[in-house]
């Protein structure tokens, strides 16, 4: 068994998002853009639904004034174990890694957009045009990952560059990756600590333990896509 395979057995990446903590503030959205070279597209393209954010906050209204509630739910690629976006890609740009990630090979992508059409969570975004960073804004671009070009599909990677870095650091120090060593940009910035990322193959990990909460649910569970993102239901007065 080579190194890569032994790594593979050890990790299954997943995320828990506690909706009782999430305040809908959108810090994760901006943190993700900064981390992952996600472009802004401007007002006109936004009006055509072509914004590129990899994580977005959906807001739902329930009830009517005055008995009305708003709920927020951060929505990102669910890294489904049974991902509907994968089998439809004619060039295998959308694929599954053995660590449970739903990967996207940018330089393989030919832009058919089948994957986006097949994603029930609308988690995928497409570069309809060449992204723009008027100078000197481009100085901010991270060298850890590519800038995707026109015609390429992209989406949340669970900050794959941070996963890599975490694993490399661990390897250099000759130890396994410690729980919560790897923190995606969204989770790192989230003030109330709503997002917990971790190794679902490790029953001791915080993410694994949280994922067993009574409040757990997954999005569109009945579609059977087996998302790796687990949500915990938000509150409401418990004495109600």
């Amino acid at each position: 068994m080579n190194q890569a395979e032994s790594d593979n057995a050890a990790y299954h990446w997943g995320m828990v998002i506690d909706l009782d903590r999430c305040t809908g503030c959108g810090a994760c959205v901006v943190a993700c853009q900064a981390e992952n070279n996600v472009p802004t597209v401007g007002e006109t393209l936004c009006s055509q639904g072509r914004e590129m954010q990899w994580i977005r906050i959906e807001r739902y209204w329930e009830g009517q004034y005055p008995e009305v509630r708003a709920r927020f739910i951060p929505l990102l690629c669910q890294h489904c174990d049974n991902a509907p976006c994968e089998p439809v890609c004619p060039v295998y740009a959308s694929y599954h890694t053995s660590e449970g990630l739903n990967g996207q090979v940018y330089n393989r992508c030919v832009g058919t957009r089948y994957c986006a059409n097949n994603c029930p969570f609308s988690a995928r975004v497409f570069n309809f045009f060449e992204p723009e960073w008027p100078e000197p804004l481009n100085n901010q671009l991270s060298p850890d990952l590519t800038v995707r070009s026109k015609g390429v599909m992209e989406k949340c990677t669970f900050c794959i560059q941070r996963i890599r870095r975490g694993k490399e650091d661990a390897k250099l120090e000759g130890r396994p990756v410690r729980d919560e060593d790897i923190v995606p940009a969204c989770a790192q910035t989230c003030a109330p600590g709503a997002i917990v990322f971790g190794n679902m193959a490790d029953p001791e990990s915080r993410a694994f333990r949280l994922a067993r909460s009574k409040r757990r649910f997954r999005l569109l569970e009945d579609l059977g896509t087996e998302p790796s993102v687990i949500y915990l239901k938000g509150g409401g007065r418990e004495d109600d």
Binding site: V30, P136, C190, A191, G193
Partner: peptide, 20 residues
């Protein structure tokens, strides 16, 4: 003050530095 966390505006301060 913030114990490792930041808001969206704090994240975006980079764009002030590199504003065209």
């Amino acid at each position: 003050v913030n114990r490792g966390r930041l808001c969206a505006r704090g994240q975006a301060a980079l764009q002030e530095l590199y504003h065209p």
